[in-house]
């Protein structure tokens, strides 16, 4: 019996090893930003990691950013879904994993980006929406090599969508910015100025609308808002990598 089995076993082992070698392994220790291609500097990596880790800790949704300079001969979509499956991105049963995969321009090859949604996120981030995020938020920044800016915007949008802060229809209709947020901003401004006035400080109305609008228009840029965070290097703990989630081919891609 051993004689019969061992060639089979050996073959199986060999095949699985050969397969496993082709796809990259997650970085160790496990993290959400796996910048194999080195597109981000260490501070940018830390900021994104912090943002994504925070989100993961509160919602269990795993948003991975992966950059590679070589797709090992796979098509981008195929590569992304295989990696997602292999790393088990998302929680088992919930399948709430999302991958932003980037293959930068190398030589004459075009740069490519893909957003892949796990089964559980297909409803909140449908393909058309993923496409829109790529075309509107990632590609324009990536063209200028501003990888951090694009990723920061896209992750904010994805998080807001995934936690139901606004729906896909809002996003598609309002051209990217939900009216409700603008409204909230003015409500906040009103209350704030009210408080200042009550305190007797004459600042009340002196926040000029122009400046307020200026602040507002900057919001998109620095929407990460973690600018005070810079010293967290290596202090992340308690993340144990993919949770066994699964992907069914949802998402979209684009190139530049």
């Amino acid at each position: 019996m051993k004689k019969f089995l061992s060639p089979l076993l050996f073959l199986g082992l060999f095949l699985s090893l050969a397969k496993a070698q082709e796809l990259p392994d997650p970085m160790y220790p496990p993290r959400l930003v796996n910048d194999f291609a080195g597109l981000l500097n260490s501070e940018e990596v830390n900021r994104l990691e912090y943002k994504l880790r925070n989100y993961h800790d509160t919602t269990s949704t795993q948003i991975y950013i992966i950059t590679v300079s070589d797709l090992m001969g796979y098509d981008l979509a195929d590569f992304t879904f295989r990696v997602g499956e292999k790393w088990g991105i998302g929680q088992k049963g919930k399948d709430n994993g999302l991958i932003i995969m980037i293959k930068p321009k190398v030589g004459n090859e075009r740069g490519e980006a893909m957003i892949a949604t796990g089964y559980g996120l297909e409803d909140v981030i449908p393909d058309a929406l993923a496409k829109r995020i790529i075309e509107k938020e990632l590609i324009p920044e990536f063209k200028e090599e501003n990888f951090y800016a694009g990723l920061d915007k896209a992750t904010t949008t994805v998080m807001d969508l995934a936690s139901g802060k606004f729906t896909g229809d809002d996003y598609l209709d309002e051209g990217g910015f939900p009216i409700s947020l603008i409204f909230l901003f003015f409500v906040f401004l009103y209350i704030y100025s009210g408080i200042r006035r009550q305190k007797g400080k004459s600042l009340g109305h002196s926040v000029p609308l122009g400046a307020a609008m200026g602040m507002f228009s900057n919001m998109g840029r620095s929407s990460g808002g973690y600018s005070s965070f810079s010293s967290g290097r290596g202090s992340f703990g308690g993340f144990s990598g993919g949770g066994g989630g699964s992907f069914g081919g949802g998402g979209a891609r684009g190139s530049w």
Partner: peptide
Amino acid sequence: FLELQAQLEGTENRIAVERR
């Protein structure tokens, strides 16, 4: 049409994944 195109692409991807 652009939306349909994105959906169609996604569907082709899904087919590839589920077949695999």
